[in-house]
Each structure stands twice: as C-alpha cells, then as structure tokens.
C-alpha cells in the first residue's frame, strides 16, 4: 500500500479549486436571488411580504442537505437529471437567498426611515431612493455579516459530496478509501478549508471593527 504522495496532494488541490468554483457559483447566484428576497421582504404590498416570509421560513427551517436531496435525487425522479455541480449550486443558491435576503433586509431597515423620507421629499422615486440613498448606507452595515456568511457557504459546499460532486471533501474520501489514512487525509482537507476560510473570517472581523468605529477618514 502506497503512502500519501504529491499526486494525491495535487488531486486535493484540484478539488479545492472545485470547492471554490461551487462557492462562487452558489454565492453569486444566491446574492442575486437574495437581493430579490430582500426587495420582496421590504415591499409595500402586503402579500409579497407574506409570501417571501414563508419562503424564508421554509428554507431557513430545512437542512441544506434535504434541499440538495430534493434537487438532485427528487428532480431526477421526475425526469430532470441535473449534473452534480449544478444541483449543488442550485441548492446552495436557494439556501443563500433565504439567509442573505434576511441579513440584507435587516440592514436596509436599519437605515433610518427619515433618510428615505428626505429622499422622497426631494422627488426621488422609490427605486432611486433605494439605490442612491438606502443601499449605499445598508451595504456598509451588511458587509461584515455577508462576508461571515460566505464562510458558512464555503464550508457547506462539502455537502455536495453526497451528490457525488468531487470537491474537496469528496476528493479526500476518495483518497482515504485507497490509503486508509483518515487522520492525514482529512487533516490536510481540513487545513485546506481553513486556509480558505480563515482569511475571510479575519476580513469579516476587520470590516466589523472598521464599522464599529463608524467614522469615515476625514477628507
């Protein structure tokens, strides 16, 4: 039985790349969907708010793994067979949309109402008020929790391994199945995840600190 070689390590690095690809896909699509959820959650029309709240409650109250099973195995039963990457990306997108939508709703609503009143008194439309006045202020507040959530998404891509998608977790399983060195193999996988997540966590904390100071540098 051979030991852990450079070939294995390169295999893990390649899988790490797929983890990143999946994260970017999920987070990118999830951000778009999350923006729509945020708009719906802050809509003026009551039923739009109600429907979007039900959506958020359902997704937040369901394990991501179940969503993934539904998309990957469930849709296959009704004849829609998605590639593992796509199924995982869609599941994660749904998961992201609910959580990001809620995070961002909170940030948008934390901007004082008087700001939109002032903007609307100047004749700006609701959309212009949102884009020019509310979002720039909400984004400052939203950045730390959003980056923090990105870390969660990155780690949760490991669930895609159950759909057979060869990302970092799946790749380490494959190697371990032939080498039977779980401490070594999964230890390296863990280190690789950590190497991706730790800078993001630090970034999130740094942004939070900057925000808490809350002061712009004097111009």
């Amino acid at each position: 039985m051979g030991g852990f070689t450079l070939v294995h390590f390169v295999y893990l690095l390649q899988a790490t790349l797929w983890t990143v690809v999946l994260t970017v896909l999920a987070f990118g699509l999830g951000s778009l969907a999350g923006f729509v959820v945020m708009l719906a959650r802050t809509a003026r029309t009551r039923w739009i708010r109600a429907v979007s709240m039900i959506y958020v409650d359902i997704i937040q109250g369901t394990p991501l793994l179940i969503v993934l099973f539904l998309i990957y195995f469930g849709l296959a039963v009704v004849g829609i067979e998605l590639p593992a990457l796509l199924a995982a990306a869609i599941s994660l997108m749904i998961y992201c949309s609910a959580f990001l939508g809620e995070i961002w709703r909170g940030c948008v609503q934390s901007v004082p109402r008087t700001q939109s009143e002032a903007a609307e008194c100047l004749g700006l439309t609701r959309w212009q008020t949102l884009v020019d006045v509310i979002l720039p202020q909400a984004m400052r507040i939203a950045t730390p929790p959003t980056v923090g959530f990105l870390v969660q998404v990155l780690k949760n891509t490991s669930l895609a391994s159950v759909a057979g998608f060869v990302e970092l977790t799946r790749a380490s399983q494959v190697i371990n199945n032939s080498l039977f060195q779980p401490f070594l193999v999964f230890g390296i996988a863990g280190a690789l995840y950590f190497a991706l997540c730790y800078p993001l966590s630090r970034l999130s904390r740094a942004l939070e600190r900057k925000l808490n100071v809350g002061r712009r540098q004097p111009a």
Binding site: P112, T114, Q115, A118, C121, G123, P136, Q137
Partner: peptide, 16 residues
C-alpha cells in the same frame, strides 16, 4: 414634491 421643499428637525442629510 418638485413644488414643495421640506427641511426636517434632524437635517436628514445623506451621510455617505
């Protein structure tokens, strides 16, 4: 609102 300007107690300038 193009015809009517308003100034508030709390100024409500856009801080950004």
């Amino acid at each position: 609102r193009r015809d009517v300007g308003m100034v508030f107690q709390s100024y409500n300038l856009f801080p950004h």
